[in-house]
C-alpha cells in the first residue's frame, strides 16, 4: 500500500442526493409547465424564461466573483431555479430590460445580500417578482391571450385573467354564476388555457411536477397539502355562505399562482420551516393570507405576498416549533 489510510469520523457512507441533483430535480419538475406555457404563449414564454435564467445566473456569477470574492457556485443550479421560477411568475410579454432588473433584485437583493444559498430569509424569485409588480404595475398586469399570442412577444394581444374577471365582476356586483360563464371552463383551467403568468397556468403540468418532486423526496408533502387544503376549506366556507358573491374552491385552486406557489415557491428550502409541525403552520398561514388578499384585498392574486409574509415568520416558527423528541413523553402501550 503506497498511499496513506484516510481517517475520518463516522459515517463513512453517504446518500445519493446532493444540492446539484436536488436543484436539477426541481428544474426537471418545472419543465412540463414550461412546455404547456410555450404551447399557449409561444415565443414570448421562451424569451422571458431564457432571459430570466441567463440574467439570474449571470448576476450570481458576477456578484460572487467581484463583490463577494468567493468561488462562483453557479453550477449548483440554484440560480437557474431562481431564474426559472422568476420567469414563471411573469407575463410572457414582459420587455427584456424589466426582466433583467427583476433578476438583479432577485439575486442581488433577495439572495446574495444575505450571504447566498441557504441564508436568504425570503424567496428570491418572489422578492424580484413583487418588486417588479410594484415598480412596473402596468407591464406586470397585462396578460397575453393564450394561443392568440403565440407568435408575438411584447406586442401580444392581451386580455384579463380569470381572477381579474372574477374580482372586478364581484366588485361590480355581478353574480358569480354569470361571471363563471365569462371565464374558461374547469377543463381549460386545469390544462392551462387562460391568461396568466408563464408558469402558473397549467394545473395539470404543475401537479405532474409536484408528484415527481414528492416521489424523488425533493420536497415533503406537508407544505403543498396544507396550503391547498386551507385554501379549499376557507374558500369553501365563503362559497357555502354566499355562492353568488364568492367563487368556488375549485376555481380558486385552479386559477392564479396557487399551485405554482404551493408546490414550488412555498417549498423553497431556505425559506420554509424545518419541522413538519412548522410546515403545517406555515402552509395554513399562506392559505389564509392568500384567500384574504384575493377576496378582500386590492390585488386579484395574493400568493406571492402570502408566501413572503409567511417567510418572515419562518425564523420564529423554527425557534418555537420543535419536532417531537424521542422519549419526551413516556408512552407505555
Amino acid at each position: 500500500m503506497s498511499k496513506l489510510l484516510t481517517v475520518s469520523p463516522s459515517p463513512h457512507t453517504f446518500g445519493g442526493d446532493n444540492v446539484k441533483k436536488l436543484m436539477y430535480g426541481v428544474i426537471l419538475a418545472l419543465l412540463p409547465a414550461l412546455a404547456v406555457s410555450v404551447y399557449f404563449f409561444g415565443i414570448g414564454a421562451l424569451v422571458v424564461t431564457a432571459v430570466s435564467i441567463i440574467s439570474c445566473i449571470g448576476f450570481e456569477y458576477l456578484i460572487q466573483k467581484f463583490l463577494m470574492k468567493t468561488e462562483p457556485t453557479i453550477s449548483d443550479g440554484s440560480a437557474a431555479v431562481t431564474g426559472l421560477l422568476l420567469a414563471f411568475n411573469l407575463p410572457s410579454n414582459l420587455p427584456v430590460w424589466i426582466i433583467i432588473i427583476g433578476a438583479l433584485v432577485s439575486i442581488g437583493v433577495g439572495k446574495m445580500s444575505f450571504g447566498g444559498l441557504g441564508n436568504n430569509p425570503f424567496n428570491p424569485a418572489l422578492v424580484g417578482r413583487v418588486f417588479m409588480l410594484i415598480s412596473f404595475p402596468v407591464q406586470m398586469t397585462s396578460w397575453p391571450e393564450p394561443v392568440a399570442a403565440r407568435t408575438q412577444y411584447t406586442d401580444a394581444v392581451t386580455g384579463a385573467t380569470p381572477l381579474d374577471v372574477m374580482k372586478e365582476g364581484i366588485a361590480d356586483g355581478v353574480p358569480v354564476s354569470q361571471l363563471m360563464g365569462e371565464v374558461p371552463g374547469y377543463l381549460d383551467l386545469f390544462i392551462g388555457r387562460m391568461g396568466g403568468c408563464i408558469g402558473e397556468i397549467s394545473a395539470a403540468a404543475l401537479i405532474l411536477g409536484g408528484i415527481y418532486l414528492l416521489v424523488r423526496k425533493i420536497i415533503s408533502w406537508h407544505i403543498p397539502v396544507s396550503i391547498i387544503a386551507t385554501i379549499a376549506v376557507f374558500t369553501g366556507i365563503l362559497w357555502g355562505a354566499n355562492p353568488e358573491a364568492n367563487a368556488d374552491p375549485v376555481f380558486h385552486i385552479l386559477t392564479g399562482g396557487i399551485l405554482l406557489g404551493a408546490i414550488f415557491m412555498a417549498t423553497d428550502y431556505a425559506t420554509s420551516p424545518m419541522t413538519a409541525k412548522g410546515m403545517w403552520i406555515y402552509g395554513v398561514g399562506i392559505g389564509i393570507i392568500t384567500v384574504t388578499i384575493r377576496v378582500w384585498g386590492a390585488y386579484p392574486e395574493g400568493m406571492s405576498f402570502a408566501i413572503l409574509i409567511m417567510n418572515a415568520f419562518v425564523p420564529v416558527i423554527n425557534k418555537y416549533v420543535k419536532p417531537k423528541r424521542f422519549g419526551e413523553e413516556i408512552k407505555n402501550g
Binding site: T6, S8, H12, T13, F14, N18, V19, L22, T73, D76, S78, G115, G116, L117, G118, N119, S220, Y269, A270, S272, P273, M274, T275
Partner: peptide
C-alpha cells in the same frame, strides 16, 4: 469511497 465531498452551505432542506 474514502474521500468526503466538499461541504457546501446549508440549504435548510430540513
Amino acid at each position: 469511497k474514502a474521500k468526503r465531498d466538499k461541504p457546501q452551505n446549508c440549504i435548510r432542506c430540513a
